[in-house]
Design a protein around this nucleic acid. Structure first.
Lengths: 95, 95
DNA sequence: TGAATATATGATTATATGTTCATATATTCA
DNA sequence: TGAATATATGAACATATAATCATATATTCA
């Protein structure tokens, strides 16, 4: 059994995947780098909701971003992310 | 972008990993099959809390169980689980 | 500079979630 | 059968979380 801190951090990490809005953001970013308003259009919700969720994704180091003029472009920042989502999908599609 | 139903199911699936009590249960079961009261001892919480959480793990098909007399023995029911936890741990340990 | 656009953020609210407590169910064994 | 043990479950409560709304903070460009 890992230390409590590891357990806690792991649970926090997986919380990121545990929401459908964030999962949609992740899928959108798997395609390509996107600015906030494009993510909002793709996901189908408000800019504010996306911005709040992107903050969580940033805090968990799942996305990185670069500013270009008025826009902020986000992209996935870890190879594990796609692998983890893929494994999850294998699981749910086997049921 | 997958269908909404897939997105929703994926988020639900990852919710299972998004709690430290459940993460401890998963780690305990990685070692070996265990009965409820042993899980409670290892995790360090009440039988009731464990039982509630095991119900979620059952619903998500992450654990299977067999009854033996008064006891119910639980074990992990999917090879993806260990892989997913391992990937998550790689992520948090790289930060 | 001022309007327009893109993004971030704080407060609020509604909902979801985890634990606790009490109790029900099931099994064993004297 | 009745006591003891293991597990499951419903209700209640406290906390966490996500969306919304209003607004703040850039940045561009006329």
């Amino acid at each position: 059994m890992p230390k409590d801190e590891i357990i806690y951090d792991l649970a926090e990490f997986f919380k990121v995947f545990a929401d459908s809005t964030r999962m949609k953001i992740i899928y959108a970013l798997m395609e390509k780098e996107l600015c906030v308003c494009d993510i909002a259009k793709i996901v189908g919700t408000t800019q504010s909701a996306i911005s709040h969720q992107l903050r969580l994704l940033k805090q968990s180091k799942l996305v990185k971003f670069r500013k270009e003029g008025k826009e902020v472009f986000y992209s996935l920042d870890d190879d594990h992310i796609e692998e983890i989502v893929k494994k999850g999908r294998e699981h749910i599609e086997e049921l």
